[in-house]
Amino acid sequence: MGAVVLRLKAPPPWPLDLAALQPAALAGKSADEIARMTLGRVAVGDVFAVSAGDAAELVLQGGSPLLDCVGAGMQSGTLLVEGAVGALAAAGLRGGRLEVRGDAGDHLGGAAPDSRMGMSGGVVLVRGNAGARAGDRMRRGLLIVEGDAGPEAAGGMIAGTVAVCGAVGAAPGVLMRRGTLLLGTPAVAPPPGFIVGRLAGDGTFLRLLARALHAVSPRAGECVAAVQHRWLGDLAALGKGEILVTGGQAIPQHQRSG
């Protein structure tokens, strides 16, 4: 049988919280059982045409920015969305893989409502753009946005890897403690709180990173290959994070006294 497939029948009436639709939890359930599950006031069957499956694999056909919390809290399995998703996709995701073949809303891979920690494992790939605060307070895992991301990407990041192949909004990496933010669009100066750092001469780590990213997104892998700058911050916080930047002109190396 394979994957569970949910086809969006009509636009959702209002924002729906889809966190309950976990691939591993749906595997082996009958179409009827899935259709009867509730999403707040509506049943899954009211919104989606359900075809059951036995694999920990869920496909959402058709997307909408009103589909919130897609893959939120997911621990295993794979979830593929053939369309857009709303806010809080992959929020608090702990394992498994989410791919969105469309745009994602705010707080992609961020902290689930009522939680203090962003995604803490797994792989998230968004083929389109993401909203504000992608990767907010992320602790572990890999989050790739092949398009653009909004402001405060990787804000408050604790660890992990966020790659934005397109442009980013204001204040990327703000309050970043540790972790890596990869920016695919050439930038010229580090954001406030970051200083110009150095790439390791041997590039060993970039080789590992490129290989890992390429396996998920060749486009992101190519961005690593083009990395020329490394910025360190956020010095307002712990300051052990890095922003890796492709191309562009860096400002001169920050001179420290002594």
Binding site: R140, G141, L142, A159, G160, F205, L208, A212, A215
Partner: peptide, 21 residues
Amino acid sequence: ISKRLDGRRYWRVPVLDGEFV
């Protein structure tokens, strides 16, 4: 710096010629 990629954890230790991974 610690970094987990593909389920493996790597350490990046600053050394005189760059990083020991």
